[in-house]
Amino acid sequence: MTMRTSRFSPLAVAAACLLALPGCGAPAAGPAVKVEVPAAPQLAADPPNCNDGRPPNATLPAAVSTDPSKFPAGSTMATIKKRGYLRVATNGDVLNWGATNTKTGDPEGYDVDLAAEIARALGVDLKRTVYTVIPYSQRQNVLAEDRVDLVAQQMTITCARWSGTAKTDTAAANPAINLSAPYYTAGAKLLVRKDSAVTQVAGLKGEPVCGTTGSTSLAAVAKLGVTPVEAPSAGRCLVKFEEGEVAAIVGDETTLAGFTRQNPSSKIIGESLSPGQYGLGTQAKATDFTRFVNAVLVRLQADGTLDRLYAKWMKPIVGGSATDVPAADYSRNIAALKRQS
């Protein structure tokens, strides 16, 4: 697929920064930084550029240093380090990504491990990390309200998140946030019974298919002729699936992967619909922390940590060998970005 591009480009960029350019990415002002990174190949269907003229995946340049002993005074990192623990918002019921282990009461999964890596890089006590489980609709609010430092919750990188959205008749206002470089590429797929002969959406024409209310993937499969059934959460779709109310579930393959673990009589099928990249969310004003997170991601990519996380959480279910993300694009122009206050 066109999305599968070099997994090592963030490393290359970071290496260039660290080795060649002492001031690389240091100033917060985007335009001054001259880091030429080839933009990720875009699908024709990819969303247009954001209102600063940059693609959704574009982010702030990676920080030069991630050394906890050299956090500038007054920086977000210094504040967190002084506090002693990281505050993270994640999922509570998405198996393998963010789910409460009911035996220990602790959350676990890919996103939880990734957040732990950020905490480790900050040099704070991992055991004291405060995980807040939030519904998807609250992701931007908890950052804007300074209730968390980081959102690690299968969050797709979009322009709407970068710029924030005003209140509409159907949706509440969502404040602007910063997003990291992509760390995972996921698309929507279908969950069907294990004995189903269906391999494509087309095979489910006229059949009831469950998706979360307002999700783009549900709208997409509805156009292909299935009967859409809405549920307030992906988990509620699994209930409908197990109760025989729907023939299939459409949702992020990462979420569906957790469903196959809970229901071994199901399997994931279909082409990846509208694939998007997951990014870590940070507070809009904390650009220094966004750049710090980007630098940590470069290292996690380079030292194989992301591959290990994939092998730990996703490979046993969906196979494959590693997460494939587009090259990091550090061209985000915060100054030119028009944001909802």
Binding site: G92, D93, L95, T100, N101, G235, L238, E242, Q262
Partner: peptide, 8 residues
């Protein structure tokens, strides 16, 4: 320990 329990 399956999260779908909460959905049920």
């Amino acid at each position: 320990g399956l999260p779908v329990g909460a959905s049920y």
